[in-house]
Amino acid sequence: MRFKKLFKRNEFYVGITIVALSILIQIRSGQFFTGNNFVDLARAMIIPGMLTMGVMMQIISGGIDVSFPAIAMLSMYTTVKVALSIDFQGSMVFMFLFSTMLGLVMGLMNGALVCWLKLPAFIITLGTGSIFLGFMQAVLKSRNIGILPKPMRVLSKTYLLTAHNETLGISSSLPFVFIFLIVAVALTSFLLRYTMLGRGIYALGGDRDACQRAGYNVNAIQMFIYGTMGALAGFTGLTRAVLMGSCQPTSLIGYEMTCIAAVVLGGTRISGGHGTVYGTLMGALLLTMISNSLILLGVPTYWSKFVTGLLIIIGTGMSAYQALQQRKKLAGKYPVEEEKQV
């Protein structure tokens, strides 16, 4: 019974694919199970891992947000720009706080519009995303900034550990900001599992009317979710600049689709109500592996897009098809078996 349920879960298949892919890569290149590859993967997971936490929460609640890359880029750019112009030398904490606040404000704008207009969040955030991006590129005239403020430069040179690869003679370092990913994952897990608000997010995605009847303030939950996504995006945007060692204001364009794909692959249903942190992490890991490690398999990188598309279709198609078949059959409207016993 338990196994049967396991076979129905996306996470299970994503897990198997990850394991199979790793073994395949190991056999072909012998470079997968090495310290530096793991460090590289962990490093590449930081940004998608953090962002997908927010995206997952939104999709669980039955919403969606495609403006977060724009929020992240705008917050990051503004923060860096402001810090440079005042020659900021203080603590990074303030910079992160500043960027997060910017993101929060933009996220709340999204939330307010979604609550008020009651139109598909996809379209609304498409519009706001266009505004944020346009604002950055047009009004702020954003361009790449090669030299970051000093506190950021210091942080981007701070590493947790370094792994050497003897055979290839290269080494990879795990940046300090990896801790942010751990914190984001831990906080999200805690929020979704152990707070009433988190359960409200699931409840909202499960049945909006029932959620309201249960006494939740549906609008407040939505404001929270979009606000959090904005704040998270602001924070992650700056993290990305630290990670890259430079400020590239357009580097996240198109990233929303990658994140949504990762979340959905991880078993989160786009219709809302279902989703797990570990599933989402696995989805993000799989996509990261495909874009990072496919080359180790000898597959040219330009196939990664194709593989991603195929995974999305297979991943969503399986559960969608099961649901469709289920709907065609009759659910037991009255307890037939019980009657026979009586």
Binding site: I64, F122, M257, I260, A261, V264, I270, S271, P300, Y302, W303, S304, K305, F306, V307, T308, G309, L310, L311, I312, I313, T316, G317, A320, Y321, A323, L324
Partner: peptide, 29 residues
């Protein structure tokens, strides 16, 4: 994908988009 498999349009066309773009990329390297 949308009608026969029941995949929500956003996801079906997102996946379809990646697939088609993937073919285009692979074809032109």
């Amino acid at each position: 994908l949308i009608s026969k498999l029941g995949i929500p349009p956003i996801l079906a066309t997102l996946g379809g988009s990646d697939l088609i773009m993937g073919i285009a990329l692979a074809f032109t390297k």
